[in-house]
Write a protein that binds this DNA or RNA. Sequence first.
DNA 1: TTGTTTTTTCAGTAATTGTTGAAACTTCTT
DNA 2: AAGAAGTTTCAACAATTACTGAAAAAACAA
Lengths: 166, 166
Amino acid sequence: MTAEEGKERFIQSWGALGSSWGINRTMAQIHALLLISSEPLCAEDIMEELMISRGNANMNIRALIDWGLVHKVLKQGERKEFFMAVKDMWEVVKNIIIQRKKRELEPMLKVLDEISNVESTDEASENFLQVIRDIKLFSNKADATLDSLVKSDSNWFVGTFMKMIK
Amino acid sequence: MTAEEGKERFIQSWGALGSSWGINRTMAQIHALLLISSEPLCAEDIMEELMISRGNANMNIRALIDWGLVHKVLKQGERKEFFMAVKDMWEVVKNIIIQRKKRELEPMLKVLDEISNVESTDEASENFLQVIRDIKLFSNKADATLDSLVKSDSNWFVGTFMKMIK
DNA sequence: TTGTTTTTTCAGTAATTGTTGAAACTTCTT
DNA sequence: AAGAAGTTTCAACAATTACTGAAAAAACAA
């Protein structure tokens, strides 16, 4: 396999992985492309490499910046913007956790709180409340755990965690 | 909020949550419905409650069984099948981890292995290889960590983990 | 074996989600 | 201020994904 084929393969796989996690294919592919690029790329580079339109490129680049996975880079003497991916994997995963927690886990916790105020009348609604309480308990633990995880450093994950739980 | 409204709310939210994680809305809604039901339900119950077709119900119930999130229950004297969700949240999350690891993480590890065999010719492909190696290292750690997590028990998660990493 | 009930499959269709491309906007330069 | 370079927006369109409903298959009963 040549380097060129390897890159192509990686971009495709990363795109497919994104897809199955609710991240659109193109956004994941742009991320992959920037990850493996040694130089910051501009919108045109990305459009050309992935054969996508300007609008598509722009929207997905903004989304990546929004997720904290890509940074804007200004080259002196150049007017246009260049983009560079955060390459530290721990940083990448941390940012994804932070964003998804905020966008998905926290709203769910809010809903669970609201729901757990229903008055239990019969056996069926008693069961309902019990399930909601369990999920709430579990979600709160997960929330707290993710907070700690995000605060801890890469070394901790790569080095210590496995010994602790083995 | 009445119990009925609460249930409705929960089913909708769980469906939306599923959506943003690459799980189809209906599958997540069926899961929600079974979670909060005190009795096992049959296909017709589910079709009626969620206003979906028989085909849709059937396919998504099978998928839930496939993921280990729902079990088939046979009531004596009844010919048709009934379904019951696994209600222990730890068990639910564990099964989801097992499945997604198998379906997504492991194939990605395979791809990374293949890719990391490209010969490095120039500076650009050297950078490429370095990124791939980093991702591989990180993914292997994640893989091992998830294995341990799945082997550990609920109590560990709910009780001990947070103290350890604080 | 034949009829009845239940489950499964899948081609066609519907709904959702993602993409394009051109116009509007912004920023910079002279 | 006018033009050039670059960025953003979004209505129309395309691609993908999900759902339906009816027919086939399977499971069971008499």
